[in-house]
Nucleic acid binder design. Sequence first.
DNA 1: TATAATAACTAATGTTATTAGTTTATTCAA
DNA 2: TTGAATAAACTAATAACATTAGTTATTATA
Lengths: 190, 190
Amino acid sequence: MSPRRGLDLKVILETAAEIANTEGVEAITLAALAKKLHIKPPSLYNHIDGLSGLQSKLAVFGLEQLLKELTKASVGRAGDEAVQSLAEAYVSFARKQPGLYQLTLKAPKEEDTDYHAVANELVELLFGIFRAYHLNDEAAIHAVRGIRSILHGYTTLEQKGGFGLSIDLDVSLRFMIDTFLAGIKSANRK
Amino acid sequence: MSPRRGLDLKVILETAAEIANTEGVEAITLAALAKKLHIKPPSLYNHIDGLSGLQSKLAVFGLEQLLKELTKASVGRAGDEAVQSLAEAYVSFARKQPGLYQLTLKAPKEEDTDYHAVANELVELLFGIFRAYHLNDEAAIHAVRGIRSILHGYTTLEQKGGFGLSIDLDVSLRFMIDTFLAGIKSANRK
DNA sequence: TATAATAACTAATGTTATTAGTTTATTCAA
DNA sequence: TTGAATAAACTAATAACATTAGTTATTATA
């Protein structure tokens, strides 16, 4: 145990995520974070490497939580059902934690190995699910890229209010996943 | 003509877009912009309503350019060919103007009628293209939402380096559009 | 109990956005 | 041709913020 136990990194990240979720990503400042933690801004430098270091850590923190939710949603399921369940969990996470979700794509630097480790796990999860469709290696890569694009694109547009109000959003998501999977299966038959 | 002609708003927006494209969206500051324009930061307030006002104007500015490119790419084409051509133009725009593309989704406020006017035109363009698939009204909405999600999601992930390097990106985009359209057609036959 | 390590602190600096008030240039009417 | 009106530039000042340097306080362990 270290001398002079202070703040826990986890508490810092949770507090920052709370700010992001309630006030928006741009509201994350060291000043606001320090105030919430009842310390002075410079003290944060004992735990994080400035604002950009905090953002990097938040990206990993968020990605880990997302991965956990997606894993939970897909275990015990296969094929279309697994994909739909994962998609549902994906948007559910983004709705509950909009700020943290946005942070999961914030400035992933080349050298941030922590980030890429989790990101790879997420991609591997998707590959596993798509194994049920018996695609060749390259097709599987395209399929995984496709589903990631749909999920992220849909999520962002929903968050930004990019879709009109009238027609049910969940139905749209289900439709686009269904359609994409139908396309994969129809190509498979050729 | 106004007394004391100064800077043109178009020049301001072009200069800001250049900063965004070359140094990143977060590099857009009134200080940096003023320096590039050889004026002092407060003078910018004669033309724009602060930093957030600038961002709003840039969102419209970028969306207009994107719409123009997409329109150009889809005239004289129909069906799958029109969609693929539009998709190509979309990512091409985002690659040439990464910063400006990101700005097209920056903080679209409810009351920003300029923004929503252009955004609606873009959606109408897509509806027009999907008319060739003879979908009912609701299915058309889902389809347009789907293609928008794919395009934005793909673009963002490509920009952030979210896809690994090995497999060709353009092929992936073509694959996901193809697959989505195949899904639409297979559902149509039922 | 003393030392070393660590986390908090204060003080200071530089960057930025923004507001208020002033000066300057230019169009247009007298 | 001149002068008033207008609008765009300016200077000066303030507040919020990130960040660094250096100091103080606390606590595990030797």
